[in-house]
């Protein structure tokens, strides 16, 4: 019988400056720390602020066969509405979408799948770090799915930062914790809760 490998595709969309790439890398690093495989393709325009910023992350138990840009998403992390239209066609009724409700326009919602809305920017601003909003949202994703373990996620906060940003590690970790606290495990990513040995 044909065995389909389990690959979890997570799309990230937002605009430059929202921390899309950092959030995607944080999640990818956590997946590797859990003993899983990860592949991440990042796509962004020339503008440092305001241009499109997208990421395509695949997490799997085994070698990843997916090409860089995935056509179907298991989950989506939507930080901004500006470029989100490219994400909706990739969702299915079993997809889970995390919405940064503080920013994403009310009319901008997927037509299918489950939706979890988090005031990510407001929560991050309350922590004194509005730039960490994307980390709040992936914290919520991990809380809802367990796609990576919470410990691995929190530990990866410091690891993904360049040395000249090391002082941000502590507040980034708090942003992840705040996001984790917003959701319960309603959409488990893996059939068994434990991480692979």
């Amino acid at each position: 019988m044909y065995h389909r490998r389990v690959e979890r595709e997570i799309l990230f969309t937002g605009i430059g400056g929202q921390g899309i790439q950092l959030a995607a890398r944080t999640l990818a690093e956590a997946a590797i720390a859990d003993g899983r495989r990860a592949q991440l393709f990042s796509s962004y325009g020339g503008m440092m602020r305001g241009g499109n910023s997208d990421a395509f992350l695949v997490v799997a138990d085994d070698a990843i066969t997916s090409p860089p840009v995935v056509g179907t998403a298991w989950a989506a992390v939507v930080m901004h509405h500006e470029h989100a239209a490219g994400v909706w066609p990739k969702l299915t009724e079993s997809s889970l979408t995390l919405i940064n409700r503080s920013v994403v326009a009310a009319e901008c919602r997927p037509g299918t799948g489950a939706v979890v809305e988090i005031d990510a920017l407001d929560i991050a601003t309350g922590l004194g770090a509005p730039v960490a909003a994307s980390l709040v949202l992936i914290g919520a994703l991990v809380g809802a799915t367990g796609v990576v373990s919470a410990d691995a996620l929190l530990d990866s906060a410091a690891r993904v930062l360049p040395s000249y940003r090391a002082e941000a590690a502590a507040v980034n970790r708090r942003a992840l914790e705040a996001g984790l606290a917003t959701t319960n495990l309603g959409h488990p990513a893996w059939s068994r809760a434990e991480v692979p040995s």
Partner: peptide
Amino acid sequence: YYMAHTWVD
């Protein structure tokens, strides 16, 4: 570009 920007383990 795809190859340059794909992060792998």
